[in-house]
Design a protein around this nucleic acid. Structure first.
Lengths: 167, 167
DNA sequence: CTTAATCTTCACAAATTTATGAAGCAAGCG
DNA sequence: CGCTTGCTTCATAAATTTGTGAAGATTAAG
């Protein structure tokens, strides 16, 4: 076996770093600013799911200010939480384990905004015009999807428990 | 009735413009560059679902170059198609009616990239480590969603035909 | 084959975004 | 109590993105 007994040495820092950058690239493509994306990816691969500012700054080679800004963003998006270790001003940033990707789909407010904009459009051209019909159908689509997403997430939790839970 | 007979005068340009900007704002929030977003929104509210470069330039107050760039982007994303009116070098850009929002969810390649990145992550830390388990579960989530999206879209088409089709 | 109309490409200017160092604040430690 | 450690905020510098005007290419009409 690949040496056991003294901790857990088997982790190729280079490979991990490649993952961080590749995963962050996906987050960026999805609209997240670069720095928060890298910080988030780093937290995801950390063994405990949590890191200090200093750790993040060192592995990513960025300034404390950059870490601070990134964490503020992630906090606002409810993608990480902050923990204070009692008896220290060191803060610990934690990724919400299996819930972060649920947050990705929980864009309820976002979908609401789309719907609002579309309703405004229908009103502005009249519901019986060609444009009104086109916009109305799109609106119906968003309303449909909104409900279906809820269903999907329920089905996911069942599936997850079957796969990863006891059974 | 609000004057009939001479075309279709009932369309408040200001209200339409408001919709264009609000809807474009949502697209921008979703990651689309500003100019393509505005052009796309304009096409969506147009009565025929198609416009010429000149029309777009005038209503949005942007240069031909901006229109050109925006259309190229939208074309690459398969959100609009180009039509040439025969016997004219005027081009007509058309929004794919009821299919554009399906394209929004058809991010198959996108999901594939997420999965690739996550597999790389699992490999880099080992599948049995805490981080490996966390990444593995996320990967399973994406795989699950990928399949479910297909189902949703089928259900949507049925729902749409019931609501807007004959019956 | 020349002319006119339309779209596209290119180089540049403007605006926006991003990350940094330095200064400021808060909280535990001696 | 002051000192030290660590996070945050602010102003600034750098990099990226965005939209424009001008020149170039393409195609129909005369």
């Amino acid at each position: 076996m690949t040496e056991e007994g003294a901790g857990r040495p088997e982790r190729d820092p280079e490979a991990v770093s490649r993952f961080v950058e590749h995963f962050a690239a996906q987050l960026v493509a999805a609209g997240m600013p670069r720095m928060p994306a890298r910080v988030f990816a780093s937290l995801l691969v950390s063994d405990t799911g949590a890191s200090t500012s200093a750790e993040l700054g060192e592995t990513l080679r960025i300034s404390p200010a950059a870490v601070s800004g990134a964490v503020r963003y992630l906090d606002q998006q409810h993608l990480v939480s902050r923990e204070r270790e009692p008896g220290s001003r060191r803060e610990r940033y934690r990724v919400h384990g299996d819930q972060w990707y649920e947050a990705l789909t929980n864009r309820e407010a976002v979908i609401r905004h789309w719907q609002d904009a579309l309703r405004e459009g229908v009103a502005s051209v009249g519901p019986d015009t060609p444009a009104g019909l086109r916009l109305g159908e799109t609106l119906a689509f968003f309303e449909f999807v909104e409900k279906e997403i809820e269903t999907i997430m329920k089905r996911w939790r069942v599936h997850r428990d079957e796969t990863f839970g006891g059974a």
